[in-house]
Structure formats: C-alpha cells, structure tokens
Amino acid sequence: MEFWLESLVAIVLVIGGVFLLIGSIGLVRLPDIYTRLHGPTKATTLGIAGLLLASSVVSSFAEGSISIHEWLITLFLLITAPVSANMIAKTALHHGLPAIERTKGQELMEQANRQAPPTGMTTSLESDAKDKQP
C-alpha cells in the first residue's frame, strides 16, 4: 500500500478509536441516565463508522477489488442506535428515574410517561421568556 494511503487509514482509525473512547468516557462521567444516553448513541456510531471505513479501504487493497460490505454494519448501527436509545429512555421514564436537579422542564417527565400531551407547555415557555427579560 502506498504511504499516503496508509497514513490516511491510520489517521481515520485513530479518530474512530478516540470517538469510541469519548463515548465511554461520557458513559462514566455524565451525571444521570438521561445525559448518559447522549455519549454512547452518538459518539460510538461515528467511531464504528471510522473503523469500518478504514477496514473497507484496507481489505479493498488486500483483495484487489472494491470491498464495501463493511458499510452494512454502519448502516445497521445507524438505524438501530436511535431505537435502542429511545427504548432505554422510555424505560427510564417508566421507572421514574430522577434527572439531576438543574434539568429544566422536569414537569414534562411525568406527562411523557403517561404519553399525554404537555399541558403547561405554552405557559412554561412564556414564563421562561419572562425570566430571561430582566
């Protein structure tokens, strides 16, 4: 493999690995379950995409023909990551897990669990706007 292509693949690999690590750091560092959802769902998708891109390029060169079936995993994770995040969030709401205190709009959690429309939504927005003005 040519040198520039090899270094490009190496850079993509390292970027992917760093994003995977950041996702896991988010899982450890963030304060409550709802914020913890953000790290793994987003960062790991991009991390895996980077690794698979590198794998696709390397195996294309090894076999001498274009190999793109790695993209199937990326596509699959892209479709399933939001679904599993949504299911975990649903379960967390169902069990009434508390969010950290400074979370805004906590009155919505109970309504979301009942799948009811938000009753005080417009008023809470207006009061927020009033708070900001002075």
């Binding site: 769902t41 949504n86 979301a112």
Partner: peptide, 12 residues
C-alpha cells in the same frame, strides 16, 4: 436522536 445534543424519549 442522532443529531446535535438531543435524544427523543417519548411520543404522546
């Protein structure tokens, strides 16, 4: 869910 800093949790 996939884009900037938001995760959808529930639908009414």
């Amino acid at each position: 869910s996939l884009t900037p800093g938001t995760v959808s949790t529930e639908i009414s």
